[in-house]
């Protein structure tokens, strides 16, 4: 499973300046993430986990340090290269789904497959994500929160990305729906070999991961390795 690191993070710091206030979101983070790993990032708000994921996903840049995606240093990329990197390699799942309201479920997926290099069929992606076939032609406003999140997952995996970055994917959902979303993520990781990083506040979710990275005050506090990954269904919160 661990066929070399997909991400290598070396001494990354991130400083935000808003007016006169300086916030050090990351203070020298060093980690490696292996291809095909299922990683859960845990930590209180403001501990830096989202900042790291944003930098890994090419949405934000590091103030200091280097991030390598395989052998490429993405910390040196400009906007155009970052856009291409996101387009070709990264799938995102957001807390609030961020679907296009004017497109149906299937069309939201097609939106991404149209610009991807070797995408899967949008219907297939939605089925892997667990959206029933009879819901494929519904608009987001006609779907429940869990269904919308599954569309978002379908949209994220349809281009067969190497990495799936999920920021609080279950944050807006009840536990039953949340578990079904986590099952979908686990299935993608297992069947497609996609590296998955999940940010969460929920300690229990950590039990389904290969590794759990704990964040505190902008640094990696500790890394937990699970002997055995539990099935999402057995996780309760």
């Amino acid at each position: 499973m661990n066929a070399g690191p997909i991400y290598t993070v070396e001494g990354v710091t991130k400083v935000y300046r808003t007016g006169e206030v300086e916030v050090r979101a990351l203070r020298g983070v060093d980690i490696e993430i292996g291809a095909g790993e299922f990683i859960v990032l845990l930590g209180p708000s403001g501990s830096g986990k989202s900042t790291l994921v944003n930098i890994l996903g090419g949405l934000d840049t590091a103030t200091e340090g280097k991030v390598f995606f395989r052998d490429e240093e993405i910390t040196g990329f400009g906007d155009r290269e970052l856009t291409k990197y996101r387009r070709d390699h990264v799938g995102f799942v957001f807390q609030f789904y961020n679907l296009v309201p004017s497109l149906t479920a299937r069309e939201n997926v097609s939106l991404v497959t149209e610009i991807a290099r070797d995408p899967m069929d949008p219907g297939e992606a939605l089925e892997i994500a667990g959206l029933p076939r009879d819901r494929h032609d519904h608009f987001p406003a006609q779907l429940s929160g869990g269904e919308q999140q599954r569309v978002a997952i379908g949209r994220a995996i349809a281009k067969k990305p190497e990495v799936l970055l999920c920021d609080e994917p279950t944050g807006a959902l009840d536990s039953k729906t949340g578990i079904r979303v986590l099952e979908a993520l686990a299935q993608v990781n297992r069947d497609l070999g996609t590296t998955v990083l999940v940010i969460t506040h929920n300690m229990a979710v950590g039990r389904m991961a290969d590794r759990v990275i704990h964040f505190a005050d902008g640094t990696v506090a500790r890394i937990e390795e699970n002997e055995k990954r539990e099935a999402p269904a057995s996780i309760a919160w």
Partner: peptide, 12 residues
């Protein structure tokens, strides 16, 4: 919506 698309890899 447009920012989300940018995140998904759409160009400016």
């Amino acid at each position: 919506e447009l920012a989300s698309l940018r995140v998904l890899g759409f160009t400016r």
